[in-house]
Amino acid sequence: ASKQDLSFKQLEAEFQKVLGIEALNNDLLKTLGLVNRQGYTYAGQLLSDSPGPYHASLDIARFGESSSLFLHRESLEDCSVLYQYHRVLELLDAWYAQYEQVSGFYREKRIQIPREACREALVNALVHRDYSLRVGIRVAAYPDRLEITSPGGLPSGLSLAEYLSGRISVPRNAIVAQVFHRLSIMERFATGVRRIQESYRDFLQKPSFLVTENTVTVVLPKVSYTEVHERKVYVSDRKAVHQRVLSLFFTTETITRSDVEHQLGISATSAKRVLAGMVQSYLVKKEGVGPATRYRRM
């Protein structure tokens, strides 16, 4: 697609669903940094329905017992990076056996590889990859692990130790990262690696990070939820609950526990637990104490 005939149906649908906007007009595209005086920006190309020759491809394959046995393979080309994100998660949900349990207020479907880790590793690849390279992101699903390889090494100025600490972020594609953040796909800058590590906290298996000059690979081993027994394995539709709470910030800068109670139709105790989880996930920050406590979006 040329810079004059791009469409944003996928992005518009996401903004309508998550943020409640009526239409993705040109003013909003400019605000998002997808359009400037010269036309569509690089980020605008990547988030359009048909990026064209911008090498925004992603290859995903499912392997059998050996790397030479292909059970499924797809090449996602000339499509929005948003579509790539959703399609990969859809396939992983189908390929890895699902596990479900009710725990308190939450209910969530999990797969044999912590879904939070899958999501964060995929988001990191889409946001941090070097789109100037003529190779795509590679997602390889093996019976015992998932590997996500992103083209391009670490961004200039970011050391391996800083990357592994999960406390510093230097996104190559800052506008794409900002859009993902607005859509609550990317929770907060510089927390992806840490969240991947934390998702394996209750398991013997641990993720690994392989960094070379030209690639970054995240290896996520399969886990067994039965191994943790009575330890906290939250099974919840946590993201959907959090998005409903975040929608309160469309009309105000801060919210209270009472606001969450009314928005979700839950008790004060449950609302407190939801907000505590959102603070821990760096979605909101707590201000004040006692009756004066309020919450602000990060």
Rank of each mutant, 00 (worst) to 15 (best):
80 S>L: 11
196 I>A: 06
297 R>Q: 12
65 E>Y: 10
150 S>A: 12
16 Q>L: 04
176 V>Y: 06
5 D>P: 04
196 I>R: 03
15 F>C: 05
173 N>A: 02
103 S>R: 09
262 H>I: 00
6 L>E: 08
276 A>R: 11
126 L>A: 04
17 K>H: 09
30 K>T: 06
198 E>Y: 00
276 A>N: 10
242 H>C: 09
258 S>I: 00
154 L>V: 03
192 G>P: 07
181 H>E: 10
186 M>L: 14
60 I>K: 07
272 K>M: 11
297 R>G: 03
183 L>R: 06
131 Y>C: 07
187 E>H: 07
166 G>I: 00
42 Y>I: 09
135 V>H: 09
116 E>M: 08
143 P>V: 01
290 G>Q: 08
93 D>I: 06
85 Y>S: 01
288 G>T: 13
159 S>F: 11
35 V>G: 07
109 K>L: 10
292 A>R: 00
51 P>R: 02
22 E>Q: 13
204 L>H: 15
83 Y>F: 14
271 A>F: 11
138 R>F: 08
297 R>K: 14
78 D>E: 13
93 D>R: 14
244 R>N: 10
107 R>W: 12
32 L>G: 02
112 Q>M: 12
85 Y>D: 01
262 H>L: 12
172 R>Q: 04
83 Y>C: 00
128 H>S: 11
284 V>H: 11
61 A>E: 14
178 Q>N: 15
86 H>Y: 15
176 V>M: 11
55 H>D: 15
9 K>M: 09
115 R>N: 15
20 G>W: 00
115 R>M: 10
86 H>T: 15
108 E>M: 06
51 P>Y: 01
71 L>K: 13
284 V>T: 08
130 D>P: 02
167 R>Y: 00
256 T>C: 07
217 T>W: 01
231 R>G: 07
200 Y>K: 04
225 Y>P: 02
105 F>C: 05
64 G>P: 03
237 D>I: 06
133 L>N: 09
230 E>K: 12
195 R>C: 11
45 Q>A: 03
43 A>V: 03
99 Y>P: 05
188 R>F: 03
66 S>Y: 08
157 G>F: 10
287 E>K: 14
3 K>D: 15
65 E>N: 10
285 K>D: 10
93 D>C: 07
107 R>L: 12
131 Y>I: 11
77 E>M: 01
208 S>H: 05
150 S>C: 12
117 A>N: 05
21 I>T: 12
28 L>N: 14
77 E>H: 00
30 K>C: 08
91 L>E: 15
199 S>D: 09
37 R>M: 09
272 K>H: 12
132 S>R: 05
203 F>Q: 06
105 F>K: 05
274 V>S: 13
